[in-house]
Design a protein around this nucleic acid. Structure first.
Lengths: 222, 222
DNA sequence: AAGTGGTCTAGACCACGGC
DNA sequence: CCGTGGTCTAGACCACTTG
């Protein structure tokens, strides 16, 4: 693994455990470079990752600081699996499982064709999974993916990690994602699988994820 | 302006005008470094920008290529104004105006409080603007922003660029944004202001934008 | 003036893909 | 094997904030 990613992982973990933020704002770049026995450029690449994740921000001439919502952001790392290597950390401390509730292959409807740029003859997977963290139901994940882009998806993969399969077995790379986050009331499925009441608030994340070739491959709602 | 941003702007402009993509995939990094009289590291920072924008992608050992949806992405640079300096280019070739349809200051409702992390006593701007490009109505923009984060917004600013005001006058920096893009049917406002029929499809972009301090400052739908 | 982040350089080595 | 992108270095100078 590249050094700058490992440093980012280490710092992210430290932030989530509140190892700084108490006393000083954040160690400066020269300090970090010494501490990790590396150059300042490499430290900056690490900080760029955390900055892109919204965990920290920097002001020229002043310093680097931890965002107020750092806690919120670290916590909301579901659905993306080991997208940028994030859950390698989470994986150490938490047990993540998936329960497959629905797995169909069918033709896409109009809005699915638009979202995934398909025609009506191109099959999609229609998947609903229950995500279980530390034996507690955590999230419901509705995914639609084109069969032609992600061939060979099966029950075995679904119980583990779709993203792991895409990146490790198919050797495809994730490009970008459009996300929308909102809060809503629980629906009947939420009540059934997430142990919550009919009016409990539920956090909803809708995203379209693209491969680095620009092909959209997932439209999901969590 | 930093050299790597200027190079990114130049390359983005070249891509949008189809100056490569015909013959060779994309000039390699050493070629670009020579062409712009700079180092490879700097070229890579430029490419990182275009890669984050989804315009290009790179494969180790193979080369760098232009995304298939590069055209779509370059085209869909509305709403974000000169966010990363993008519309400095568009500004040269197109005339962009804003017509203010609604401008109110009021208390936020429940969902607005959640989206912008406010309590019910903190005022928000409620703005609807019609965006006009080259004298043609182009988009309707519904924005909600907290008054306490963006003080002093007035009619004059609204007709120009809110993002320009935030970055140039208030000296604030944009952090990250969550976006959702979907297609929908035109509603009555769309018909009235965008010259379209009741069943015409409309592209909808919903986003929450954060300052680099992690404070959310805009919830908008375009 | 000192300390910080932002940028930039001119090289180096590695990993990977294609010939 | 060679060409490509990915990473990394050890310094340098600048821009900005703060005391």
């Amino acid at each position: 693994m590249a050094k700058y990613i490992e440093i980012a992982n280490q710092l992210r973990s430290d932030i989530s455990q509140h190892k700084f933020s108490q006393d000083q704002p954040f160690p400066d770049q020269l300090d970090l470079a010494n501490r990790f026995s590396t150059s300042r450029m490499t430290v900056q690449k690490s900080l760029n990752i955390l900055r892109a994740e919204g965990l920290i921000y920097s002001r020229q001439g002043s310093g680097t600081f931890i965002s107020k919502n750092a806690d919120l952001i670290v916590q909301s790392d579901f659905g993306v699996d080991q997208y940028v290597g994030t859950s390698t950390l989470l994986g150490d401390r938490h047990q993540i499982e998936s329960q497959v509730i629905k797995f169909e292959i069918r033709y896409p409807n109009d809005s699915e064709q638009i979202a995934l740029r398909l025609n009506d003859k191109e099959l999609i997977y229609d998947i609903i999974r229950q995500r279980v963290v530390d034996k507690e139901p955590y999230a419901l994940e509705y995914s639609k993916m084109p069969v032609k882009v992600i061939p060979g998806l099966d029950d075995k993969v679904l119980h583990a990690s779709i993203y792991g399969y895409i990146q490790n077995d198919l050797k495809l790379k994730i490009g970008s994602a459009f996300r929308k986050i909102s809060a809503d009331k629980a629906n009947s499925n939420d009540e059934k699988y997430l142990k919550c009441g009919p009016m409990d608030p539920v956090l909803e994340v809708t995203q379209t994820v693209f491969l680095n070739t620009g092909i959209p491959f997932e439209f999901s709602s969590t």
